[in-house]
Each structure stands twice: as C-alpha cells, then as structure tokens.
Design a protein around this nucleic acid. Structure first.
Lengths: 237, 237
DNA sequence: CGAATTGTTGAACCATATCAACCAGAGTGG
DNA sequence: CCACTCTGGTTGATATGGTTCAACAATTCG
C-alpha cells in the first residue's frame, strides 16, 4: 500500500454498507468464492425494487453485476440512502427477521442467492467464513462511522469530494490524478446519500468543475483531475 | 413486546456504536460473562482521554461503570460523536491496527481489559463467541444506519426526540410515559452526536419542555412525559 | 422528431449556525 | 458565610448555507 493511503486504512476495498458485506471478487477471494451461491441469476431492471423495508429476509444475496442502492425512508417520504452496492457486495447478511431497509436497482442488476437456512448452516460449521464475515462487518462499521462524520459535520462541497474519492477507491486502491469513475446513479440518489438536495449536489458539481478539480465527461463519467485538492477539500483543510 | 415498539426491532438492547459491542450485563449473559476480562479495573476521570485516533489498538476493553464517548475529529476541530458507551459496552473490538476514533470519559469511568492477542486466541477457538460477536456487530450496523437517517434527513427537534427515545430504550425495552433518564453528557456532546450546535440543542430542549413532551429535572435527569408524541416527532409524523 | 426525464441555474426563503449577552450552579478562597 | 470565578446552559439578534420554488437546458427514449 502506497504512502498516501497509509492513513486511509484497509477500508478502501470494501465500501459497501450495511449487511452488504463486500467481497470484491478479484481481490479478496484468491481461493475461490467464499460461499456456494446458487446458479440461478436474478435480474432486475433499472429502478426495480429488489426488496422493501419490512419484507422477510429469507435469503442472502450477492451482486454479480450492476449497482444497487439501499435506503431507509421516513413516513413523509424523506429518504436516506445508506449505501451503493457493486459486484461482490452482499445483501441481507445481518438480517434475522425482516429487512430494515429497501434495495433497488440503480442500473440493471443481476444477483445470486443463498437461502437463509443454508447460509446459517454454513455459518455454524465454517470457521474461516465467520472470521471473514466478522472482519468485513468491522470494515462496514468504519465506513458507517466515516459517513456519520460526513453527514453530521461536512459542508456540501466536502461531502461531494468525499463521495467522489470513496467511489474512486472502489475501483483502485490508490486513486491517481486524472482517474475516471462512473456514476450511474442520479443526482437525486447522490443527494439522498449525502443528506443534501439534488440542486445542492448539482451546484457542488459545477463548483468542483469550474475550480478544475473534476471534469464531467459523457456517459455519467467523471474525471478526478486533482486528487490532492479533492482530498484536502474532503478533509476540510 | 408491546405494539408501540413493534417497529423498533431488537436493536434496543444494544445501542453502543462502533466496535463497542454491547453485552448489557444482566440481560444477554445468563451464563456468565462472555469473555475472561482482566481483574484490574482501569479508572478514568471526567473528560480524561482513554485513547486517541491513531493509537495502537493493543487491547479490547469493556465499560464496567460510567459513560464513554467515542468521536472522530476533523483537522479544523469539527467533531462527530459516533456513540455513547455504557456499562457492558465494548471498545476496540473491530480494531486491527490503530484506533480510528478517540474515546474519552463523559463521567468517571472504569474499564476492564483483555489483550488483543488473548482476545484473538479466544475468537479463534470459541465457536459461540464468534456467533455472538457477529450478531452484535450486525445490530451495531442497524444502529449506525438509523443514525445516518437521523443525521442526513431529520430536523433538530426530530433528532433530539430520537436521541431521548434511544437513551430511554437503553434502560428499558419498552419506555413508558413519565420514565426518567439520566443525560450525564453536556449539551455540546449531544450537539456533536446529533450533528447540531449546542445552542440548537438547547432550543430544541426548551421546545420539547414548553410543549410538555419532556420535563427537565435536577441532576441531569429528564422525564419523558409523552412517549407517543416523542415517537411521532422522532419519525416525522 | 417530440415527449419525458434528468440536470442546471436563478431568486427567495428558512432552519440552523454564529455571535453575543446573560444566567445558574459549583467550586474556591478570603 | 459571602464575593468571585468558572463552566455549562439559556436566550436573543443576526448571518448564512442549503432548501425550496421556478424556469430552462440537456439528455434519453419511444
């Protein structure tokens, strides 16, 4: 791990949040898949609901392609997105009874499943599995803590910079200048993740754009032009 | 469980956040303590630092008395408290290398310790221990998710109502009207937990007081006069 | 190509922050 | 026992970042 990430510890490889335990395929499973996922691939269209708050949590799932958003909703419609899930991230791991959040497809998604009972059986037997899950859950907690700092104390531009950097870290351990990331979610999704409105997110984007920290490219791509400046901004320096 | 808490699921018994895995002494350990904590009790005075961001995480600790706050800080001094720990809550469980947050005593605290190596050994061997830790970590994630909704989307009075109710649930599974809770932390601490300023917290307290939802009693005690109204408020109804 | 959706920009507004004054209780020392 | 100070809390006045409302531009999609 390179120096500039020395203080941004091992949370980079696993940005999924909440029961969406990340096992980025290539990286952390040198010995093959950790779990015997079912062969059947469930497909979901853009914006299709995968499950809703209150649904019985009958199986554990892993994202095999696409992007999933998981969110909590208040009675009057206020929404907080608690995570964006990408291939390798898992869903419903911590759930015992019913889901406490909803999951929807941001873009077309495929999942594989494992029945809850089968999963629990493996958990009971498999030594290594439990150690890994515990480690991953710990990582999730660190990410959640980081997100609390963001939501509780950061300004709008700081939040967006933090978000862009965290997305960049999903793709590469060490984001470089001029690296490009894809943001398939809408401005509204980003807003609901960062505790802002769509308009504020849009304005923050243009601010970053006009101050040459990022460039907006076609096809939902963003180029991070000045990683150092973005990092400083995200930390409030 | 009574109807009014039917939707506030089994998260009540374990409100500690982040590596502070809760094992409320009386309730969840019918078969004695889960871990062989050292006999030596470490004591800390009010506001004393227990450890800081970046310190090596050499041992796991359990709170035996008092209250601990764990927080993250930004370079310019902005602070986000990510949890208040009470007797039975654990510290440093998820830490592998160094702590990513600070811990300080809100009021005088005593802790017991278990060396990291000893803990890891137990974790390696003890089947049941790992299952329990996994379950507790999952609960922590749910609480963190709830806190994200609070920080991202709730108004100041909603945040305070949510906070008071969560504190009440620590004491009793089902908070009743006229129940009393102790809030030993300062208004500034509460503000840094709720993502607000001291002044806003103070004003929210007086609002709740004048609308007869709570009463402020001597000795940092608060009486929750109308639990239903507080619940409605906390959910934005 | 036209309609619908998503994103951008502008202007007014508002909840909360900021700044400042004041108050109450707890020590502290004469 | 009484000033005196210190800290934490309350309240008021003003400022402001972000929201809201509204118009418009750009994209996507049928």
């Amino acid at each position: 791990m390179t120096p500039s990430l020395a203080n941004a510890p091992a949370i980079a490889p696993s940005p999924a949040i909440f029961n969406a335990l990340a096992l980025p395929s290539g990286r952390s499973t040198p010995s093959g898949p950790l779990l015997p996922w079912g062969d059947e691939a469930c497909a979901y269209a853009r914006d299709q609901v995968i499950f809703s708050e209150g649904d019985p949590a009958s199986s554990v799932r892993i994202v095999t392609s696409g992007m999933v958003r998981i969110s909590r909703m208040m009675a009057d419609g206020r929404r907080q997105i608690v995570g964006f899930l990408q291939p390798g991230d898992m869903l419903g791991l911590a759930q015992t009874g019913t889901f406490l959040y909803s999951a929807e497809a941001v873009i077309p998604v495929t999942l594989r499943r494992l029945s809850r009972t089968q999963f629990d059986g493996l958990l009971e037997r498999d030594f290594e599995l439990r150690r890994r899950l515990l480690a991953v859950t710990a990582t999730e907690l660190q990410i959640a803590q980081e997100q609390m700092l963001l939501l509780g104390r950061k300004t709008a531009p700081e939040r967006l910079a933090s978000f862009l950097l965290s997305q960049a870290r999903r793709k590469m351990v060490e984001p470089e200048d001029h690296c490009r990331i894809s943001l398939p979610m809408t401005r509204t999704d980003i807003a609901d993740f960062l505790g802002l409105t769509m308009e504020t997110v849009s304005r923050a984007f243009t601010r970053l754009k006009t101050s040459r920290l990022i460039r907006l490219l076609p096809d939902q791509m963003v180029e991070l032009v000045d990683i150092n400046a973005l990092t400083d901004l995200s930390e409030g320096c």
